[in-house]
Design a protein around this nucleic acid. Sequence first.
DNA 1: ATTAGCACTGTGCAAAGCCGAGTGCTAATT
DNA 2: AATTAGCACTCGGCTTTGCACAGTGCTAAT
Lengths: 366, 366
Amino acid sequence: MEYELSSRKRAILKAVIDAYIESGEPVGSKALTQGQQFEISSATIRNEMADLEALGYLEQPHTSAGRIPTELGYRFYVDCLMQDYALSSGELAQLNAMLKAKTAELDKMLQNAGKIMANLTNYTAIAVKQQGGAGTVTRFSVTFIDEHDFLLVMVLDDRSAVTRFVRTETAIDENVTEALERTLNAFIAGKDLSLITLPYLMQVEKSLGSYGALISPIMKFIYEAVGSASEKDVHFDGVDKLLEYPEFTDSSKLKEVLGMIDRKSELVGLLSGGEEDVTICIGRENGVEALAGSSLVFKKIVVDGKVVGAVGVIGPCRMDYSKVVSAIRYLSGGIESAMTPVSDKRLAPPDAGKTGGNTTGGKDDP
Amino acid sequence: MEYELSSRKRAILKAVIDAYIESGEPVGSKALTQGQQFEISSATIRNEMADLEALGYLEQPHTSAGRIPTELGYRFYVDCLMQDYALSSGELAQLNAMLKAKTAELDKMLQNAGKIMANLTNYTAIAVKQQGGAGTVTRFSVTFIDEHDFLLVMVLDDRSAVTRFVRTETAIDENVTEALERTLNAFIAGKDLSLITLPYLMQVEKSLGSYGALISPIMKFIYEAVGSASEKDVHFDGVDKLLEYPEFTDSSKLKEVLGMIDRKSELVGLLSGGEEDVTICIGRENGVEALAGSSLVFKKIVVDGKVVGAVGVIGPCRMDYSKVVSAIRYLSGGIESAMTPVSDKRLAPPDAGKTGGNTTGGKDDP
DNA sequence: ATTAGCACTGTGCAAAGCCGAGTGCTAATT
DNA sequence: AATTAGCACTCGGCTTTGCACAGTGCTAAT
C-alpha cells in the first residue's frame, strides 16, 4: 500500500501534514510552493494532491479550501514520514530537572512527569500508575490500631503498597493482629495476583475457620484491592490546554473529551492495551467514540519486566506527534531507569557512593 | 442594610433570582407577572426592579434586556431569601446508597461522594482529603521486604496512612526492621504532626546514634509526608458538566476554571479557609481572579473534632444554591458519621444491631 | 401608590452581497 | 508523457442592511 506512493507524493503529503499541524488551516497548493522546498508549480502539486485525496490520505473540508490530512494520512505520517524531533537544550533541561528529583517513588515521579509533559508539549498529559494488576503479593502487614480497628497493608512486588483500615465487630488485641499477619502471609503472600480470585479467597476463608467474622471483610478488601486500578491512580495535567486548539472550540467535542477524562477507568483500559514502545492512537483508532477527533499518545513504563504505569498525552488529531513522541520516550526512559532497584544496578559499578540510602541514577542523554 | 428592603422588594428579588437560576435568561418585569404569584402590574415591578438595581442587587446586561442578579444579589439571596431544598426521595436514595457502601475508608468515600454530587447537582464536584495536616501520628509500622528494602507505614489518627518504600545501602534483616519500628513508635508516635519539624527530627536522629545511615532518609520521608497534602488527594468529578452552562461557552472563562482545576494546591488552599457549616463563595468573594464568574460551595468534613477533608461543587454563579447546600449538608453529615469510630458511637445506643457500624441519621427538612 | 400607554433602545437573526482562496479542467509548452 | 499557465467556478466567511422583539423609563391618568 505505502509503496504505491512516489517519493514526490510522499514529500508533498509530509509537507501538507507538517504545515497543517503547525497552522491548523487547510493547506493549499500555492502555500506549498511558497515554502522554498518545491521546484514544481502549484498546478502540479494540485494534481498530486488530487491523487492523494483519491488514495484517502487527504481530504477537503469543502470545495474551495485546501487539504487536510485524514486519519489514514496521519497514520502514514507517523509510520513512515515523520522525522525524529530533537529536543532543544531548554526542553532537555526541563526534563532532566524532573528526573533528577530522585524521589524513587513512582507516584511522585508520575505526578511530576505529567506536569512537565503538559508544559512541554502543550497538550493534556495523562499519568497512570499501576494499570497492570499483574504481579505478586510480596507480603502482608497487619498493624494494630485500637480494639476495633487495624490497618492492613498489602505489599506488591512492583514496589507499591495498598492500605486498608478495617473495623472489626469483635474486640481485638495485638495478638490477634500478629496472628492474622502470619496467617495472611502463609496463605496468600507470594501468590500471583491473578490467582487471587474470589473463589480462592473464599476457600482460604473456609479452611481457616477461626477468626471467623474477622476474615470475611478482609477477604473482600483484598479482592477489591487486587481488582482494577483504583481511580486515584490516574492523574491529569494541563486539561485547560485543550482549549487552545480550535478543534475543541466546538463544545460538544470538548465535552466528549472531558467526559472521557472523568471516566478514568475507561482511560486506564485504553492505556493498558498498547505496545512496548510508544503507542499512537489516531482518532477512531482507539475505538472509543468519545475520542474520535482526538489522538492519544502514550507509553507504558516498564520496570523489571513489569508494567508499573504509563505516561502520555491527549490532544487533537492535529498533534505534533514528532515532538510528543520524543518527549514521552525520553521521560519514560528516565523514569524507568530511576525506578530500577539499586540492587540491579549494583551489578555494574560496585559503588556509586556518597548520597547514601535511596539514590537513583537519573540518566543524562547527551 | 438588608432591612431597607420592603417585603415586596424581597419577594421580587427572590422571584427574579429563582427565575434566573432556572432559565439563565435575564428576567423581565412581564415574566414575573405571568407567574401567578404577583398581584401587581408589570409597571410596578419595573419600578421596584429599578430600585433594586440602584441598591446594587440587580443589573442589566444592556438597556433593553431583563435583569440579572449581581454578586451582592446572590449574597443576599443565599443569606436571607433562599429556602431549604427538600431532597426528593429519588435523590435521597442515591445519597443513601453511597453512604451505605460502608467502606469506612475516607478515600473511597470521598471518591464516591464526588461522583454522586456531580450527578445530583449537575455541577463539577470537588473532594479533598486531609487538607489540614493537623493531627497526630498514631503509630508506625516497618515491614521488611528484602535485604535492601523495607516499607515504612505511618498511621495517622484521622484514619489515613502514608506509605513509603525505603531503600537501604547497608543490608538489613527482620531484626533491624523490628527494632526500627519500636524506635519510631517510642520517639515519634503520639506526637502532634505540627511538632514533627525538621529540627525535632534531626534531634531525634542524633539522640539515636545507632542505625546511623538508616535513620536519615527515614526522617526526610517523615518530614515530607507530614508536609502539605499532596496533589493526589484532590479529586474532581463531572468536569464536563461545566460545559452545560452557557456562562462557560466563552472559552476564556472555561479556561480559567479548568486552569484552577489543574492547580489543585491552590484550590486546597481555598477550601481550607471556610467555616464549620457550608461555605458559599460567590464570584469574586473567593478572592481568586480565575474564579470570578464562578461560585464555590463546600463544607469541611470533621471527624472527632478534626478536619479530614472537604466536599463541594464548583459552577457558575448562577447556581442552584438551595439544592447544592442540601446535598452537601446531607452527604458530609453522612460521611462524618460513617467515619466516626465505632468506639465513640457505642456510648449512645448500646447496640444498633443489624447494619453494623456506620449508619447515618440524615435530616429531612420539610 | 399604582397603572396604562408610548417612545426608545439595543440585541439577535436572516437575507443579501462581496471578497478571496483554492480548486479542476483545458490547452499550451517542454 | 509530464508539466504548467490560465481561466471559470465554487463555496465559506465577512460585512452590511433591515427588521422584529423584548424590555425599559417616563409621563400622565386613575
